[in-house]
Simulated assay, not measured.
Amino acid sequence: MKKFLIFLLAIAALFILLANIGPLILLGVCVYLLYVIFKKFVKSDSMAGKVIWVLLGLFVLSVALSNIYAVIGLAALYFLYVLFRNNGKEEEIIFNKPSESDPFTNFERQWADMNK
């Protein structure tokens, strides 16, 4: 039942990711453009150039903020990443496995070596 529930959550996360793929792409482009605009703003020497870069940056920032709900798609992508990264890594619990620090195991091994 647990695996079925995880499967249903994975399907829901996949649909959420697919529904938000467009805003995710637009948000990524806007973040890249904001980075480029900031670099151009820092390199600009004239006051008019700085004003133009600030105005352009504010416009791109408003476009980026209108797609902020794409963060839900990022959360779905992260959930799928964690889910598939841990897939198949369930450790089997072995109750009768002796540990190396167990004194009785060492004694048994030494006794077997002496009896050879």
Rank of each mutant, 00 (worst) to 15 (best):
A112L: 07
D45A: 07
V29M: 14
K43Q: 07
K116F: 06
P98S: 09
K39I: 11
L18K: 12
K40H: 08
R85Y: 13
C30H: 09
G57C: 05
L5N: 09
E108M: 15
Y69V: 08
P98F: 00
N67A: 03
L18Q: 12
I6Y: 13
P23V: 03
A10G: 14
D113S: 09
K50R: 03
L24K: 05
Y78R: 09
I11E: 06
I37G: 02
I37R: 01
C30G: 04
K116M: 07
S46F: 00
S44D: 06
R109K: 04
N20A: 10
L5Y: 04
V71P: 03
W53R: 09
V36L: 11
S66Y: 13
N67I: 01
E91W: 05
F79G: 11
V54D: 06
M1S: 10
L24F: 11
F107K: 02
Q110K: 04
M1E: 15
L83F: 08
I68E: 05
M47K: 07
F15E: 13
L33D: 08
S46E: 04
G22Y: 14
F79H: 13
S44P: 01
F7A: 14
F41G: 07
A76T: 09
L9F: 05
K97Q: 06
P23W: 04
F15G: 04
I52M: 14
K50D: 01
A64W: 02
A10W: 05
L65Y: 11
Y69G: 10
I52S: 04
A10I: 14
E91P: 07
E100K: 00
K89V: 01
I25Q: 02
I37F: 04
I93H: 13
L14V: 09
E90V: 01
A112K: 03
F95R: 08
A70E: 00
P23F: 01
F38C: 06
E91F: 11
A112S: 07
I68Y: 15
K39W: 15
M47L: 14
L61D: 08
R85I: 05
